[in-house]
Design a protein around this nucleic acid. Structure first.
Lengths: 160, 160
DNA sequence: CATTATTGTTTGCCAAGGCTAAACTATTTG
DNA sequence: CAAATAGTTTAGCCTTGGCAAACAATAATG
């Protein structure tokens, strides 16, 4: 360290306790780890959820539809489908439209439910529909069960 | 399979309340794009925010601290710092501790503020502190200004 | 002040998730 | 039923963000 910081990095106790001090290292680390982990599954869940929705609302899920709804190239979708296959989430034969395995179906259901809870919560809060949809899409993967339950309760309260 | 889907995606002018049919393709695509874009800046913001916090609470930001708080290797931090440098967000000399450029400082401030709003909102909602911290960390990058304002208002209401 | 410990950097590797271009398959239609 | 069109997959490339291990600089200590 070039400049004279009092007592370097030690100070094992956090001296300052302002509004929001830094959390202890391990806790802080766990927060970031949780986020990183969420990111790994996020995309997978988005694909599976979308496939589920397409199957539900359209009767079939085709690569081209996924591509245009995700705003992604078909090549990307194709590659992703292979991954989903390997993960045992979808069942597909080349050049045919796809289906979810029971595991995939379960994931799609869970995702859809979470998504719905977050979306309706935002609407209940007073967020405009368009914004609520966008925010929900991003937020849904980062909302814990605890928070989800509270959101659900809030929405129900508001509704009645 | 032929499947004669009436390809009209039924431009629902007023999106359904609860049933939640598929949104029109372009809107759907925009949602995913927004999320993808958020992901690109997310990590950057997290690093910058953390560096800002370390500078604020500790007087300096060292690679080792960042690494342990992010639960990431020092190599990763080092690489990231180079990127932040290129992006003009931090100023650093090799083997010295780092500083934020004005731009970086602005980003850190904005991040911290957003983070705080989301965190306090979750607490006001009744979410436990530990969970609130984790969720806030993940959610903060996906909350629009519109929603943020509403969260702020809600928290203020609750507080008084 | 020489040595050791700590911290920071570089190098080389990997996987994920994008892309385009080109090849291949299926479906529709003339 | 063959040709055209639409849809899918493959190949090859790029960027990010991880890692471990080797190396370099700085700080701490005997």
């Amino acid at each position: 360290m070039s400049h004279s910081i009092p007592s370097s990095q030690q100070a094992s106790k956090t001296p300052l306790q302002s509004g929001d001090a830094l959390p202890p290292v391990e806790q802080h680390a766990r927060q970031y780890e949780t986020v990183r982990n969420a990111h790994e599954t996020e995309l997978i869940e988005d694909y599976v959820e979308l496939i589920g929705d397409l199957l539900l609302h359209r009767g079939e899920a085709r690569a081209a539809d996924i591509a245009s709804r995700m705003a992604v190239s078909q090549a990307t979708v194709s590659k992703m489908i292979r991954r989903l296959n390997e993960l045992g989430l979808v069942k597909s034969q080349p050049y045919r439209s796809l289906f979810l395995t029971p595991e995939g179906q379960a994931m799609a259901n869970a995702s859809r439910e979470r998504h719905g809870i977050v979306l309706n919560f935002l609407r209940a809060l007073g967020v405009s529909d368009t914004t609520a949809r966008i925010d929900a899409e991003g937020m849904e993967h980062h909302v814990s069960d605890e928070t989800l339950a509270i959101m659900q309760r809030y929405t129900d309260e508001k509704a009645k």
